[in-house]
C-alpha cells in the first residue's frame, strides 16, 4: 500500500462519479454521481493524512468535512427534487430547464 495506490483509487472513483454526474438525466442519479466524487475526496484525504502528515489531524478533519458535505448535499438535493417535483412532476434535469421560461 502506497500513497499512489490510494490516490489512484480516489481518481478512479472521481472519474466514475464525474461520468455519472455529467451523463445522467435524473436528479437522483446525478446526486449519486456527486456522492461518488465526494467519496473520492474522503479516500484522498485519509491517504494524505496517513502517508504525508499523520502527526497533524488536518487530514482527518478533511474527511469529516467531506462526510458532512455528503449529508448536506443529499438533504438539499432531495428537498430541491421534491420542490421541483411538486411544481410539475419533473424528476429530470432536462425537464427542469423548461422551468426557466
Amino acid at each position: 500500500m502506497t500513497l499512489q495506490a490510494f490516490l489512484l483509487l480516489a481518481v478512479a472513483l472521481l472519474a466514475v462519479g464525474l461520468y455519472g454526474a455529467l451523463s445522467q438525466q435524473s436528479i437522483v442519479m446525478i446526486m449519486m454521481g456527486l456522492e461518488l466524487m465526494v467519496n473520492a475526496v474522503i479516500v484522498a484525504g485519509a491517504a494524505f493524512w496517513f502517508f504525508v502528515s499523520p502527526a497533524q489531524p488536518d487530514g482527518q478533519v478533511v474527511v469529516l468535512v467531506a462526510v458532512t458535505l455528503m449529508a448536506v448535499e443529499m438533504a438539499m438535493g432531495f428537498a430541491v427534487a421534491i420542490a421541483i417535483f411538486r411544481s410539475g412532476e419533473i424528476d429530470m434535469t432536462d425537464m427542469a430547464a423548461e422551468l426557466r421560461d
Binding site: A15, V16, L18, Y19, L22, S23, Q24, Q25, M29, D94
Partner: peptide
Amino acid sequence: MVHNRRGSLAIA
C-alpha cells in the same frame, strides 16, 4: 436516462 453519453465518457 442519459444524455451526452459520449462526451461525459470522454471527460471522465
